[in-house]
């Protein structure tokens, strides 16, 4: 897998973790969500984001504002963000996840599962 895609996945996973950690519903379950822990997670996020090319991070953030996430998996040739079906010739490529790609329909960064 491309290094940048791997980092974008980590970024998205941290964003999901942060969203949970800051929600009342999650806190009420009794999991440790001290302010210092959340800060630690935010620092990890910054470190990962700073190691990704600036333009890619910018696009990721823009997509996150628009869709609530910056990257979406393609499952069974379908983009899980907009549900567009990829043509067979694209879905059967052997060089998937080797570079950052976008869904031609919704523009989200895609990860092939």
């Amino acid at each position: 897998m491309d290094d940048v895609i791997e980092k974008l996945i980590a970024l998205n996973d941290i964003d999901a973790m942060l969203k949970d950690a800051e929600s009342e519903e999650y806190r009420s379950l009794g999991f440790e969500t001290k302010e210092e822990c959340i800060e630690k997670l935010k620092k990890m996020r910054e470190e990962i984001a700073s190691s990704i090319p600036r333009q890619v991070v910018k696009r990721y953030e823009k997509l996150r504002r628009k869709y609530g996430r910056g990257i979406a998996p393609v499952v069974n040739s379908v983009c899980t963000n907009c549900f567009m079906q990829f043509p067979t010739e694209v879905a059967s490529r052997t060089d998937k996840n080797q570079k950052v790609e976008f869904c031609p329909n919704c523009g989200i960064i895609i990860y092939w599962t």
Binding site: N12, D13, G30, I71
Partner: peptide, 30 residues
């Protein structure tokens, strides 16, 4: 990827909630 996400979650606070129970959890794009 999933293992890394779980490790990150544990790094911000153990999911070992006491009384012999742990509930490791995470979300991941993969």
């Amino acid at each position: 990827v999933v293992l890394e996400a779980l490790r990150k979650r544990e790094a911000i606070g153990s999911t070992g909630i006491g009384h012999g129970i742990a509930i490791p959890h995470t979300r991941s794009v993969v």
